[in-house]
Amino acid sequence: MNSWNFVGIIAWIIVIALLIFVVFNIRNRHLKILVGQKKKITWTTILTDLLEIVVIILAVIGLLYNSLFTKVDLTDKSEVAVSYKYDPMIVQTTDDGQGYYVKINKKESSSATDVYQYWLNNSTYTVSSKNATVSDATLPFTVSGLHLDWPMKKIKKMDSKYQFAYVITVQAKYKNNFINGLGLKANRYAMEYRVLRVPARSFINVER
Rank of each mutant, 00 (worst) to 15 (best):
V198C: 01
E52P: 01
Y174S: 09
T138F: 00
T75V: 12
A11I: 01
V80I: 08
Y125N: 09
L148M: 07
S111G: 06
P151K: 01
I16M: 03
L196F: 02
H147Y: 09
I46C: 04
S128K: 04
Y116R: 08
G99L: 05
N25A: 14
L19T: 15
I53D: 04
K32G: 15
E207F: 03
K85Q: 13
K39T: 14
V115D: 03
N176S: 13
S111F: 06
Y166C: 07
L50S: 13
S110C: 02
Y65A: 12
L47T: 15
I10D: 13
T124P: 00
F24I: 14
L31Y: 13
W4C: 13
Y162H: 10
G181P: 03
A165D: 00
K154Y: 01
L47N: 12
K107R: 08
K161T: 11
G36T: 15
N205M: 03
S109V: 01
I56S: 08
I168V: 14
D73V: 09
Y118C: 05
E192Y: 05
Q98I: 12
S111Y: 06
N180A: 05
S67E: 14
F6P: 09
W4L: 11
D96G: 05
I20W: 04
I155C: 00
M191Y: 04
M158A: 07
V91P: 00
Y166N: 08
V134Q: 00
V7P: 07
F69S: 13
N105D: 14
K38T: 14
H30K: 15
N205T: 03
K71D: 14
V7T: 15
V54C: 08
R201F: 01
V23R: 13
F178R: 07
P199Q: 02
H147W: 06
G145Q: 04
E108A: 07
F24M: 14
K173F: 01
G36M: 10
Q117R: 08
A186P: 10
E192P: 00
S123E: 08
Q117M: 04
S144A: 11
K85C: 02
T75A: 10
L182H: 06
L51M: 06
G8E: 03
K103G: 05
R201I: 04
E108H: 03
P199I: 02
L196P: 00
R208E: 08
L58P: 12
L31Q: 14
I46L: 02
S123K: 10
